[in-house]
């Protein structure tokens, strides 16, 4: 059996004294596009942050391609929420994208021509090459998102984490992101996306994890993205969705 891209076992995370994730298991086979869904406060973002080592778990362990994250960092790319940074920061699009090379570059080394070329290439993939010299405050929400995607792309990773990449973006950007996700999957990469829009889950993804502090379900969309599980994850709040769901 091939090694899973992610193996999370018994993960428990507490903020101050309040548990955010309780004893969660999650396994993501290599080469899947996976959505993490769940209501607000379900611990979706916490989940990927703890896999990335940004939050210390109270218990449990995380393996990335069979080893602890710290050893596999070079295989992982990360797209944080767009709103997590100050877009008035004095820097250009190209500069932000080149930050994706910092991890490979290491301490004290300066950026060079190869980093530049890689960044331009990634910008081209997200349709933002002509914006390379643009100051980042001049970008629209969708463009900001694409810059963040490009930054993760230059990391040239095997496994990508994206925190709500579709949040507040225009239709063009949404299509561009979906295309990109599919390209990544064809190239054998694994992508984990924190996702809000339940209706597009079956269309965009092939694997899904449903969270609500505990794991509700985790598996292929066709198997686990069921009304019953949705109701378990969202409580009564999801009733209106079952009708919509039938369309897919």
């Amino acid at each position: 059996m091939a090694v899973n891209a992610i193996d999370v076992t018994d993960l428990t995370i507490a903020y101050k004294d309040k548990p955010v994730l309780w004893d969660v298991d999650m396994e993501v086979p290599s080469g899947t596009l996976m959505a993490i869904v769940g209501p607000n406060g379900a611990g979706k973002t916490t989940m990927i942050k703890s896999i990335l080592g940004l939050i210390k778990p109270a218990a449990g362990q995380v393996l990335v391609y069979g080893k602890p994250y710290a050893e596999q960092r070079h295989l992982v790319g990360y797209v944080p929420q767009r709103g997590s940074v100050d877009w008035d920061f004095p820097t250009s699009v190209l500069d932000v994208v080149m930050m994706g090379r910092y991890g490979a570059l290491g301490w004290l080394k300066r950026l060079g021509a190869s980093e530049r070329a890689a960044a331009l290439d990634a910008l081209d993939k997200v349709g933002m090459k002509s914006f390379a010299q643009r100051q980042i405050s001049q970008l629209s929400g969708g463009q900001q998102q694409r810059v963040f995607l490009a930054r993760a792309l230059v990391q040239d990773a095997q496994l990508y984490f994206m925190d709500e990449p579709f949040q507040g973006v225009d239709a063009t950007t949404e299509r561009a992101i979906v295309t990109l996700l599919q390209e990544l999957r064809s190239a054998g990469k694994t992508v984990v996306v924190v996702h809000h829009d339940l209706q597009t889950v079956p269309e965009y993804f092939d694997w899904v994890t449903m969270l609500n502090v505990r794991r509700i379900a985790c598996g292929p969309v066709g198997d686990v993205f069921t009304d019953q599980n949705l109701r378990k994850a969202y409580g009564g709040k999801v009733a209106f969705l079952s009708a919509e769901n039938g369309k897919h």
Binding site: T12, W22, D23
Partner: peptide, 10 residues
């Protein structure tokens, strides 16, 4: 308390 709950849930 936390550990007890964790144990039962586990």
């Amino acid at each position: 308390e936390f550990a007890l709950t964790m144990l039962t849930m586990h």
